[in-house]
């Protein structure tokens, strides 16, 4: 696999009136093309900060994030669906293309095909409030894919959903990502979610977070996340990561 991103010694400090807060410290790893990486850590450990740095939304205080392609297109999916109620579903999905001024007939057809493929074509002209939580997350992911990103960043994408919806939506989202073949980085505090979806899990320590451990997840059969949870090696990885987080220094 070709290396897509090199992350080297990145740190981030925030300046507040109460003093300096170090969110992440000396983090290094590589991201290969087509890989699905999950970054796991406790709440407030700096996972979202790390993701924002990787997605170039904020700059690191130290270190470097190097992309091995010029002007990479970045897709970012947030904790909430963040759909705009003043637009219908189709306009929401086309938003990124409008902003990037790259909306044309071809792109529009690509987006409509995605909506059709994931059974959302009947909701194209509905308002987001008319959709269920799971459907909104699917729309949110399609909006991210519409700009045809080189890399996808998912910031706790299922944290706003209840447990059963979360399992169903993670299956749907996993399928969409795998179909697209996009390189994906997801941050989550849910160990099960990370193991069941990712090829590699990076465990972060408490704030200021450093990389505590990383695991290549080798399950018998890579299937949908709900089925992956039933794999005999799932609990093995779960215990390892749990121990890492439990012994969180």
């Amino acid at each position: 696999m070709n290396k897509l991103v090199s992350v080297r010694h990145i740190s981030k400090k925030y300046n507040t009136l109460q003093g300096e807060i170090e969110a992440i410290k000396d983090i290094s790893f590589d991201i290969n093309e087509g890989e699905f990486i999950a970054i796991v850590g406790t709440s407030g450990c700096g996972k979202s900060t790390l993701l924002s740095i990787l997605a170039k939304l904020i700059k690191p205080s130290d270190g470097i994030v190097k992309y091995n392609i010029d002007n990479p297109v970045i897709g970012y999916m947030l904790q909430e669906d963040a759909l705009f109620e003043h637009y219908n579903i189709l306009d929401n999905v086309l938003l990124g293309l409008k902003i990037k001024k790259s909306l044309n007939k071809e792109n529009r057809e690509y987006v409509i095909d995605l909506l059709k493929k994931y059974k959302l074509e009947n909701f194209m002209f509905k308002k987001p409030s008319e959709l269920s939580g799971g459907m909104k997350q699917r729309v949110s992911l399609i909006r991210t894919l519409a700009i045809q990103p080189d890399i996808l960043f998912l910031d706790e994408p299922f944290s706003a959903l209840d447990f059963s919806t979360r399992l169903n939506v993670s299956d749907d989202v996993y399928k969409i990502i795998k179909d697209s073949g996009k390189t994906t980085i997801m941050v989550t505090h849910d160990i099960g979610e990370a193991i069941s979806m990712a090829d590699k899990v990076i465990v972060l320590s408490k704030c200021p977070s450093v990389v505590k451990n990383s695991y290549y997840i080798e399950l018998d059969k890579r299937d949908c996340p709900t089925k992956n949870r039933k794999d005999k090696r799932f609990n093995y990885y779960y215990d390892l990561i749990w121990k890492d987080l439990d012994n969180n220094e």
Binding site: L57, Y76, A82, F84, E85, L95, I99, K100, I147
Partner: peptide
Amino acid sequence: TDKIKIKLMNSFGASKYQIVRYLVIPSSY
């Protein structure tokens, strides 16, 4: 205006004027 939605606009590389046009004004309707 919802900060999460502003972050989303930033992730698309939106300018301040685009944020006002596509998000701030319509959501403050």
